[in-house]
Amino acid sequence: MPDCSENYEKEISEGKNVRNVMCKYCNSVILTPSSASFTSFEYELPLIRQSKTNDQNPKTENVSLFWAVNDMFTFQNVGFSNTVGNNKYLTCADCEAGPIGYHDMSNKMSYVALTRVIHN
């Protein structure tokens, strides 16, 4: 598993999420236990809660640890943005914080960044 600022090993068992995956801002449940698979790859995701005046050139960060979800109906409380390129960004459906991840239109997979959520 790649090094990261937090130790996420305790959140993964048999490649799945052990606990609820929740919004950092409102504690809304996004995924229930064992509903997503851990995966790791590099992706440049826009920062959370930045000014809408920056829509054309949003600030981004490289994210590499994700919960992969292959069916959008697996989510408990997630909103999908309008299509941007080949993706839709994921937000908390309750407080609209995001993006917490993205949905890839080409393979119909959704990816929630571990650093953008809490586990409880």
Rank of each mutant, 00 (worst) to 15 (best):
K10Q: 05
G101F: 13
V69Q: 06
E14R: 03
N82W: 07
N20W: 00
S5T: 03
S81W: 08
N57L: 02
F41M: 11
S81P: 05
D3T: 00
Q76C: 14
C95T: 04
M22R: 06
A93R: 00
K10N: 04
S40F: 07
Y89R: 09
P33Y: 00
R49G: 14
A36L: 09
P2Q: 02
S5R: 01
H103L: 15
K88Q: 14
G101E: 14
E42V: 05
K10W: 03
F75I: 09
N7C: 09
N107H: 08
S106T: 15
N7M: 04
A113H: 09
Y8P: 03
Y8D: 07
P2V: 00
Q56V: 12
K16N: 01
K88S: 06
M1N: 00
I30D: 08
V69Y: 09
M22C: 06
I48P: 01
A93E: 00
V84N: 09
N82H: 14
S110R: 12
G98K: 03
K52M: 14
E44T: 15
Y102E: 10
C95W: 04
S35C: 07
N87W: 03
S110M: 13
L45A: 10
F38W: 13
E6H: 07
E61V: 09
N17R: 03
E42A: 09
V69E: 08
P58L: 08
S64K: 15
L114N: 07
T60G: 04
E11S: 03
Q56K: 14
N7R: 05
W67G: 01
